[in-house]
Amino acid sequence: MSDEIADAKRALRAELRERRQQLSERARDAAAAGVRAQLDALVAQFGARSVSCFLSTPTEPGTHEFVEAAVERGIRVLLPITRTDGLLDWAVATGGADIAEGLFGIPEPTGDVLGPIALDDVDLLIIPAAAVARDGMRLGWGRGYFDKTLGSMEHCPPVYAVVFDSEILDDVPRDLHDQPVTGVVTPTQTRTFAPAAR
């Protein structure tokens, strides 16, 4: 990655992180409710019986309500567990499961650990992002876990990134290893990009 691209990514992430930290609790609660409604509709649209999702941090658009409701409806939800080698393990979400702080302070499940290939059986991937460009390019938080995961999948199902409405941007800095997404989910909308995006 060139220094110029790395610097541009770093600056944009810092700006987005600061904006997220300034949101009120009321705005966060409203965003979580909106994200849940959008994700519920997306799961129904795809007829998904197995999905991957992530447990949001306090500054991310909330996903905990969606995960709990999906598990109650009998949908198999895989949650990521970070590894020191840059790959992701997975655990099946269960109602009322214990949550621990994983690497980088990210909430992670404490259940039975499944390896990276567990993801091969899901119908839909729901992933975090710092921002998404209007052409489907995703800007992550810089650790490369999801770019590596998506880039290694032989048969990748639809991938939707979850961001706030203001984080759909005209463009984001990108490098060769960065992976596009099928669509984006915000508290107020779900947008699917042209098939060429993925």
Rank of each mutant, 00 (worst) to 15 (best):
V122A: 06
L114Q: 15
P107R: 03
I117P: 00
L139S: 13
P173D: 06
L88W: 09
L103C: 00
F164K: 09
A130P: 12
V163P: 12
H155F: 11
G96M: 01
P109V: 05
R174D: 02
P173T: 09
V163L: 08
M137R: 15
R138Q: 13
P116I: 03
A129F: 05
D175V: 07
M137S: 12
Y160G: 00
T186D: 03
D123W: 04
G140K: 10
L88E: 08
S166W: 07
Y160I: 00
G136Y: 10
T186C: 02
A131G: 07
V185K: 04
G96T: 01
Y145D: 02
D147N: 10
I106P: 04
V159M: 02
L124T: 04
T186N: 03
T149M: 15
Q179D: 00
G111F: 04
Y160W: 01
D112Q: 13
A118T: 07
A133P: 12
R134C: 14
V92C: 12
G115F: 07
G140I: 11
D147H: 09
F146L: 10
D147I: 09
A131R: 06
D171Y: 02
L87N: 09
V185L: 06
I168E: 08
G111E: 10
V122P: 06
F104S: 05
G96F: 01
Q179W: 00
P157H: 02
L87I: 01
V159L: 02
E108T: 14
G105F: 06
R174I: 08
H177D: 07
A93Y: 14
V181F: 05
D123G: 04
G96P: 02
G105V: 07
L139E: 13
P180G: 14
G102P: 12
I168S: 02
T94A: 15
R138A: 14
G102W: 12
A97W: 08
L169C: 04
L176I: 11
F164E: 09
D171M: 00
G96C: 01
L124C: 03
L176S: 09
F146E: 10
A100E: 14
G151V: 07
L139G: 13
L114G: 07
A161G: 08
G115N: 13
T186L: 01
G96Y: 02
P109D: 05
L103H: 11
P107A: 02
C156R: 15
L103F: 10
K148F: 02
D175N: 10
P180Q: 05
F146C: 09
L114M: 14
L88S: 08
I117R: 13
R134H: 12
G111R: 03
G151K: 05
D175G: 15
A97S: 13
E154N: 07
P158G: 08
P107Q: 03
V159K: 02
Y145Q: 03
V184T: 12
I127H: 02
L169M: 11
F164Q: 10
R143C: 01
Q179N: 00
W141C: 11
E167H: 12
V132M: 11
